[in-house]
């Protein structure tokens, strides 16, 4: 994970786009998501930077940023595990999956593992109802989960991070 909010290229790109379109404000989610994907989450400086690029006040950016549940305004682990707790997953064992995750990671919902790798968050339906129960780690969706499969996935995610 880069320690910059936006790379020089991204900055240029957004500045140019903001200048050429009629309603620069429409880019607010794009900029926030770019910051989040670089930095892991959106710190105050990220909100301010977004405002500066789009000619909005920090508050105007914050109004939008805090509306969404997938913009993180607090530090999170390197990988966020979104556990679907909506009805289809619930009907096929999401609660067990959730409990298993909490136990193996040693954290409660909203928490981050002490090594800073995983953050656990509940989410509403992931659109993986046919493969319930499902979780999304980062932007990858995993379905048809059992505790064993989940352990493997966590292993793989950890290993991928170490590379």
């Amino acid at each position: 994970m880069a320690e910059v909010l936006l790379t020089e290229d991204q900055l240029d790109h957004f500045r140019v786009r903001a200048a050429e379109i009629a309603h620069p404000r429409e880019l607010v989610i794009d900029v926030l998501r770019a910051i989040q994907s670089n930095f892991g989450w959106v710190p105050d400086e990220g909100v301010e930077l977004t405002g500066e690029i789009l000619r909005l006040s920090p508050l105007q950016v914050e109004e939008v940023a805090t509306f969404y549940d997938k913009i993180f305004r607090q530090p999170v682990g390197k990988r966020v595990i979104h556990v679907c707790d909506s009805v289809c997953c619930w009907s096929r064992g999401a609660e067990e999956i959730y409990a298993h995750l909490q136990k193996t990671l040693g954290i409660s919902p909203g928490g981050t593992t002490s090594d800073g790798v995983f953050t656990l968050l509940p989410t509403c339906c992931l659109g993986a109802c046919g493969e319930a129960p499902a979780v999304m780690i980062g932007l990858t969706t995993y379905g048809d989960l059992t505790p064993e499969r989940l352990d493997e996935i966590l292993e793989r995610e950890r290993a991928a991070l170490e590379e």
Binding site: S86, V87, C88, C124, C125, G127, A128, C129, G130
Partner: peptide
């Protein structure tokens, strides 16, 4: 947007 629980056809 497809976020209503039980709905995943657009994704497919």
């Amino acid at each position: 947007d497809e976020k209503e629980p039980g709905t995943y056809k657009d994704r497919e």
